[in-house]
Design a protein around this nucleic acid. Structure first.
Lengths: 116, 116
DNA sequence: CCTCTTGCCTCGAACTGTAAGGTATGTATA
DNA sequence: TATACATACCTTACAGTTCGAGGCAAGAGG
């Protein structure tokens, strides 16, 4: 199904962007919560720091993949809610395909080696 | 099975190292051939350049994951054959586990989003 | 008053992947 | 002979990522 799609650097590297896009595609959220949620959801397996997440969010916003909206949460503290834009939705699909391609490749190469 | 294993930067990033370790664990090989083989095996999906592979091999050698041996191939040209060391074998297993952990996380988060 | 939680942010260090370029030899071809 | 190609190694410079460490501010609870 992946056939002839070259894996670029982004796939080998920036999976965090894909992860954040996926989380945000389930509904708007904000940095602080995303960090908490990812940690909980994965039982501590994935523990991204704020110093990692915020810059990625900013980059994605610059590229138009997500949009921000300030809003006072129930805690009274202002939160910066991000939502996925149309362009971001397209990017998520592409990223997911690239990811699938990487999984295929890794499995085909690791297959025997990992078993031994 | 992965339970409480933190994914570190190496996992999110350097999958090339894992790939090379896996290939070399099937038997000694040399840079030029590895580049060719990975390209063919994956039908062009994975196309690493020499400028990518050689530095990684050198780094792995420095860390003692692989060892090198010069030897004249049938072409008359000298080749630098690499083999996986014991430490490299351990690293491969760890990397494979990290990879499995990443796959789990990505699937759990992408799952729904990727379907839509 | 102090501390904890929430919630945002930036900076610097360390590392990676890659293109581009360089060296050298054997073989085939004109 | 000259030219080109495949083999086979290598380094350098650039752009991009992740992450720890740290800072700022405001509300809640002791």
């Amino acid at each position: 199904m992946v056939s002839v799609m070259r894996l670029n650097k982004k796939t080998l590297d920036g999976n965090i962007e894909t992860l954040l896009l996926a989380v945000l595609s389930e509904g708007p959220s904000y940095g602080y919560q995303i960090v908490r949620e990812l940690g909980e959801r994965t039982g501590g397996v994935l523990k991204l720091g704020e110093g990692t997440v915020y810059p990625v969010l900013h980059r994605m916003q610059e590229r138009g993949l997500i949009a921000a909206r300030w809003s006072k949460g129930p805690s009274g503290r202002p939160r910066k809610y991000y939502r996925v834009t149309r362009r971001g939705g397209t990017a998520l699909k592409q990223n997911a395909q690239q990811w699938a391609g990487l999984v295929e490749v890794m499995q085909s190469v690791l297959g025997d080696a990992a078993a031994g």
